[in-house]
Amino acid sequence: MKAKSRPPSRKPLSKILWSGFGAFLGIYLVAIFGYYFSIEDNFFLLGSFGASAVLIYGAPQADFSQPRNIIGGHVLSALVAVCLLKVFSSVFSTELLCALSVSVSIMVMHFSRTMHPPGGATALIYVMGNEHIHALGWVYPFTPIGAGALIMLLVALLVNNLSQNSQRHYPTYWW
């Protein structure tokens, strides 16, 4: 358990400010979109999008932050959660479905090369959700999840490429 190295140094102020600006704009636009287009309780503003904001605005060069990972990780994990709940809700406990939704989502993201850690939260949110979220059924992977992830991605493309720092330019790869 002994540390092998020192922590990395603090990022430059410009990177910190760009990250904060991107996260603010991305989350704000998802919230505004949800306010005008969701039926009830702003379903668009989910905790997993906060984690996505950390990745795509704070670490835009990371593999987990690339477009295929953002969209694929969220949408595939949401599909897994809906499928598991629809097929096994009468057989398995909520606790077991929670564990299955995250573990199967991780395996699907590995197989599809779309690993995006917030995808696990997207699956868990659906399984743990209330009757309003469950009522979305097969719509959940596309809206709020797909639409919200797409809004976050579009903001990441704009904000990360406005920076003068070429190491911040985004994406590293599309597909």
Results as ranks from 00 to 15, higher is better:
Ile125Gln: 06
Phe24Glu: 04
Ser65Gly: 02
Ser65Gln: 02
Ala3Gln: 07
Phe21Pro: 05
Ile145Thr: 07
Ile16Val: 14
Leu55Met: 14
Pro118Arg: 06
Gly129Arg: 14
Gly146Glu: 03
Pro171Gly: 08
Lys4Val: 05
Leu79Asn: 01
Tyr126Arg: 08
Asp41Leu: 13
Arg68Gly: 03
Gly50Leu: 10
Ala51Gln: 09
Ser5Trp: 05
Glu131Thr: 13
Glu95Gly: 09
Tyr173Lys: 14
Ile39Cys: 00
Leu124Arg: 10
Gly50Cys: 12
Ala51Asp: 09
Met115Gln: 14
Cys98Gln: 15
Val80Met: 13
Ile70Trp: 05
Leu84Lys: 03
Tyr36Thr: 08
Lys11Cys: 03
Gly47Val: 11
Gly26Lys: 01
Ala78Gln: 04
Cys83Val: 01
Ala147Phe: 04
Ala81Pro: 07
Asn165Ser: 15
Lys86Met: 06
Lys86Ala: 14
Gln167Glu: 15
Leu158Ser: 07
Ala135Ser: 13
Val104Thr: 10
Met128Ser: 11
Gly137Asp: 09
Val30Ser: 09
Pro12Tyr: 02
Ser103Asp: 09
Val80Lys: 12
Phe64Val: 04
Trp18Gly: 00
Cys83Asn: 00
Val108Arg: 03
Met1Ile: 02
Val104Cys: 07
Ala78Thr: 05
Val54Cys: 12
Arg113Gln: 14
Leu157Ser: 02
Val54Trp: 05
Cys98Trp: 01
Ser19His: 03
Pro60Glu: 05
His132Phe: 07
Gly73Val: 04
Leu84Asp: 03
Leu100Arg: 01
Ser52Cys: 12
Ser19Cys: 13
Thr94Asp: 10
Arg10Gln: 07
Asn130Val: 11
Gln164Lys: 15
Gln66Ala: 10
Leu46Ile: 14
Val87Ile: 15
Leu100Tyr: 02
Ser166Ala: 14
Ala156Tyr: 09
Leu29His: 03
Val155Cys: 14
Trp174Gln: 06
Ser112Gly: 01
Tyr140Trp: 06
Val91Lys: 07
Asn160Ile: 11
Cys83Trp: 03
Ala123His: 12
Ile71Gln: 01
His132Arg: 13
Pro144Gly: 04
Arg68Ala: 09
Thr114Val: 10
Lys86Tyr: 08
Val75Phe: 10
Ile133Glu: 00
Ile145Ala: 02
Leu17Phe: 13
Met115Phe: 12
Met128Thr: 11
Ser77Val: 08
Ser77Phe: 07
His116Phe: 07
Leu17Asp: 03
Gly58Leu: 07
Thr122Met: 04
Leu124Pro: 08
Leu79Gly: 05
Leu96Asn: 00
Leu29Ile: 09
Lys4Cys: 00
Gln66Ile: 11
Lys11Ser: 13
Lys2Gln: 12
Leu46Val: 11
